[in-house]
Write a protein that binds this DNA or RNA. Structure first.
Lengths: 213, 213
DNA sequence: TCCATCCTCAACCCATGGATGAAGCTTGCC
DNA sequence: GGCAAGCTTCATCCATGGGTTGAGGATGGA
C-alpha cells in the first residue's frame, strides 16, 4: 500500500454534467492521498487531456454526448493507454454495467453513492482491486449468464421497439417477415420475456436500447 | 429587483445524490446574492427542514427514494407552504415535466445545465418569472395538447408493458379481455402510437411508467 | 470433417388491432 | 329532477399480426 502523503492518487474526472464535476471535485479534493488533476466534459476531451496530464485513475461518466464512457475506454485500449477507470453513472442498467466491464472498467459506482463509498472504491481500484457495489455485482453476474444478442437481432429489436410490425421490419432489412419473426422469437427467448412488448420494455430498462432518440 | 447584497436568495437543495448536493453547494455558494441555507436528501427531510429553516427557493430532485419531488410539491401545497421551486433532474421525460408544473414548480432544469444557466433560472424564478429551457418548454407544450390517460388505462398500460396479454390483463383486473382491448386501443390512440409495443416503449420514454421496478 | 451458430424461409393457429354498437355508471350542470 | 358527458364495461366481425415449430443453407471454429 503506497504512502498516501508521498504518492497521491491522481484522478481525472470525465462527466458532461458541471454539477457532478463540481461535486466530485469538492468531495474528493480535500481527501488526503487523493488529488483531482483535471476534468473533462467528454471522452474526446479526456483523451486529449491525458496526453499532457498524468493521471492514475479515471472517474468516467457512461452516458455523454458524442464519445461516451464505453467508447472512451475502447479508445484508450486502442491507443495503448492503460489507466484504471471507475464508471460513475446514474443508471444501473445491467447492459451498461456489462459493457463497462467488458471495456475494461475496474469499478462501477452509482451517483447516489456517498463520499465514503466513493473514496473506498477509488482506493480499492487504485490498489488493484475491482470494486462493485453488491447490487451491481449481482446484476453483472446475472448478465454474464445470458447470451448476447446477435447484430441482426439488435437491428430487429430497435425497430420492434419503435412499433414496426414484422413485415415493416422485413422490408427495411430486405428480408422476409417470416424471418423477422424468428429473430423476434430468438430475442424473446434470450431476454427471457413473454412477448415482443416485454422484449421492448426490457431492452430499454436493461440499457440494451438507447433511450435518447 | 431586490438589492442582492441585502437580501440574498435563500436556497434549499433537495437531492438524494451527495455528489449533486456538493456540486450545487460549490457552484452556487460563492455566487453573490445567493445563499445555500441547507440541503436534504429526501422529500420528508426537506419538509422537516422547512419548519425551522427559512428559505426562498427549492432546488428539487424529481426521482428520489421515498417521497419524490412531485410528492414533496404536493405535500407543500397541502400544508399551505408556498415556496418557489425549481425541479432539477437528469431526465427530460415530458410526463415528468408536466407533472412537475402541475404540482407547482416554476422552473425545470436538467442536470447537465451549466452554472450560468442555473443562476439565471434561480434569479428568474425568485423574481417571479417561470424558467424553462427551450426543449423543455416545447415538450411541455406538446404534453399539454394531449389527453390524460384514465386510471384504468394506466393500470392496463402497466400490465401491457410487462408483457401480459389482453386476456391475462382481463383476468387480473377481473374484466373481459374484450374490454381490455378497448382500453388498449384508447391508449394507442391517446399516445399516438401504432401498436401496443410502441405504447409500452413510449410510456417508459415519456415517464408515464416508472422505470424502477 | 464435424459441430455450432447465425440467417433465412414457410405453414399452422391464436392473439391482436380496427371499427362499431351499446349498456350501466358517476359527475356535474341546468 | 333531468340531461349531457365521460368512464368503464361487454360484444361482434374481420383483416392482420404474432408466437410456435420445423427445416435448409452459409459460415466459421474445433
Amino acid at each position: 500500500m503506497p504512502d498516501q502523503r508521498d504518492t497521491p492518487i491522481r484522478i481525472l474526472i470525465v462527466d458532461d454534467h458541471p454539477v457532478v464535476v463540481a461535486g466530485l471535485a469538492s468531495m474528493l479534493g480535500t481527501q488526503p492521498g487523493i488529488e483531482v488533476v483535471g476534468s473533462a466534459s467528454s471522452g474526446e476531451e479526456a483523451l486529449e487531456l491525458l496526453r499532457t496530464t498524468p493521471a492514475d485513475l479515471l472517474l468516467l461518466d457512461l452516458r455523454m454526448p458524442g464519445m461516451n464512457g464505453i467508447d472512451t475506454l475502447h479508445a484508450m485500449r486502442s491507443s495503448k493507454i492503460t489507466k484504471r477507470a471507475i464508471v460513475l453513472t446514474s443508471f444501473e442498467a445491467d447492459e451498461d454495467i456489462y459493457r463497462a466491464v467488458q471495456a475494461g472498467a475496474q469499478g462501477y459506482l452509482l451517483k447516489d453513492a456517498c463520499q465514503t463509498e466513493m473514496i473506498e472504491a477509488i482506493r480499492a481500484v487504485h490498489g488493484g482491486t475491482r470494486y462493485f457495489p453488491r447490487d451491481i455485482a449481482a446484476r453483472l453476474a446475472e448478465r454474464m449468464m445470458r447470451t448476447d444478442l446477435t447484430a441482426r437481432e439488435l437491428e430487429v429489436l430497435h425497430m420492434l421497439a419503435r412499433g414496426l410490425t414484422n413485415k415493416e421490419i422485413g422490408s427495411a432489412l430486405d428480408i422476409s417477415g417470416n424471418t423477422v419473426r424468428n429473430h423476434v422469437n430468438s430475442i424473446i427467448e434470450k431476454l427471457e420475456v413473454s412477448d415482443r412488448t416485454e422484449a421492448a420494455t426490457t431492452a430499454i430498462l436493461r440499457g440494451i436500447i438507447e433511450t435518447h432518440g
